[in-house]
């Protein structure tokens, strides 16, 4: 048998051996046996000396072709088993996090901002524009034009921080009603909300703060009635607490609205069944509202020097909510002081 014939036998054996190698270990053994640095092919190359001179080129070509063939076959077989086997466990731990310092970090908006944004988004969808007013006000905007005359007991309900004579920290966002309506650049209809800070001298504890937030709403148009007010607030609580939340009104008194109402909504925690959040009543108090008192329109007309807000032509509603109170309900927060303390553990949670 010539060397070339023997080589053909080797090729056949190698092909069969490769087929039989089922796992990576078998493959590796095959590689070492045939194409490794100390393998059979290398050993065969050393037998070149035995080949007659005239056959050397043919033998060399044959050896090279065989080496290429076996290497290619090996790589193909290796790829095949690699695709078939499961990923090696140690090399890919999906639960292993990025090293500290390389992780994505994101912060959060303050919970009061998010509650305000939720209110704002719902009310924007109803056509309300967001406006602002100053936090340091004069007595006219904070009291007089809101129909809270000097020496009137209703001023007692609005104890106030003063900075100087006729400069005070606003005690309610209702001041923005006046600020907006007295702008000469605007005429009714008006549809605005005014979120912002308000201040009242109060002892600071779990349920009282001297700085807190409200959102005021004002809608003035022809033929605005309490039914529009109820409809708007109904949609607003659905936006805040989900579909199926209901509203109800109870009579109340605010100097700048008449008729006035306290607005309750069905308890978001128990859907009105009665629970410890609503103290078994099924309803929770959300804020005050009512129809803009004609005296407020008249004060605005006086400030503008015209009759743009003729109470015989225009009517309107206004409402005001404490944002902290809503936010506390949304997150189950029981201590008001957490809001201004900004403990990161609180901010990360809420």
């Amino acid at each position: 048998m010539s060397l070339l014939d023997e080589l053909e036998t080797l090729r056949a054996e190698a092909a069969a051996g490769l087929k039989a190698a089922a796992d990576p270990a078998g493959l590796e053994a095959w590689r070492i046996k045939y194409i490794g640095t100390k393998g059979l092919l290398k050993a065969w190359m050393k037998r070149m000396g035995e080949v007659p001179k005239e056959d050397k080129p043919a033998f060399g070509q044959r050896m090279n072709a065989l080496k290429d063939e076996l290497t290619a076959a090996f790589e193909q077989a290796q790829a095949g088993t690699a695709a078939a086997r499961p990923a090696a466990k140690a090399s890919f731990d999906v639960t292993e996090p990025l090293p500290a310092g390389q992780r994505h970090e994101f912060g959060r908006r303050h919970p009061l901002t998010r509650t305000t944004e939720q209110l704002r988004d719902t009310l924007r969808a109803l056509g309300f524009e967001v406006v602002e007013g100053p936090e340091v006000e004069d007595e006219r905007h904070n009291f007089d034009d809101l129909n809270i005359p000097a020496d009137h007991p209703s001023r007692d309900n609005w104890d106030t921080f003063f900075i100087a004579k006729d400069a005070l920290l606003r005690s309610q966002t209702s001041t923005v009603q006046i600020r907006v309506m007295e702008q000469r650049s605007r005429t009714p209809p008006i549809r605005v909300i005014a979120p912002g800070r308000v201040y009242r001298p109060d002892t600071i504890d779990a349920t009282h703060a001297s700085t807190f937030h409200q959102v005021e709403g004002l809608y003035v148009d022809r033929n605005v009635s309490m039914a529009d007010l109820k409809g708007t607030l109904q949609l607003m609580v659905e936006g805040l607490f989900g579909e199926g939340t209901r509203v109800r009104f109870r009579p109340s008194f605010f100097p700048f609205t008449e008729p006035s109402a306290e607005m309750d909504c069905s308890c978001p925690a128990c859907a009105g069944e009665g629970c410890n959040v609503c103290k078994g009543i099924g309803w929770v108090e959300l804020g005050g509202c009512g129809m803009v008192d004609p005296a407020v329109f008249e004060a605005v007309n006086r400030a503008r020097g015209d009759n743009a807000y003729d109470p015989e032509v225009w009517s309107g509603f206004a409402f005001g909510f404490g944002i902290e109170r809503l936010c506390m309900r949304r997150h189950g927060i029981s201590d008001l002081r957490l809001f201004l303390e900004n403990d990161l553990r609180f901010l990360r949670q809420t």
């Binding site: 924007r124 109803l126 056509g127 309300f128 524009e129 967001v130 209809p189 549809r191 809608y219 148009d221 009635s225 309490m226 039914a227 529009d228 109820k230 409809g231 708007t232 109904q234 949609l235 109800r248 009104f249 109870r250 009579p251 008729p259 109402a261």
Partner: peptide, 22 residues
């Protein structure tokens, strides 16, 4: 209104549509 009862007030949601400026 108070003596008639606020529970009689219907829910009205037909305000004119509007895209408020920002």
């Amino acid at each position: 209104a108070r003596l008639h009862g606020y529970h009689h007030i219907p829910i009205e949601t037909s305000m004119p549509a509007r895209i408020p400026p920002r």
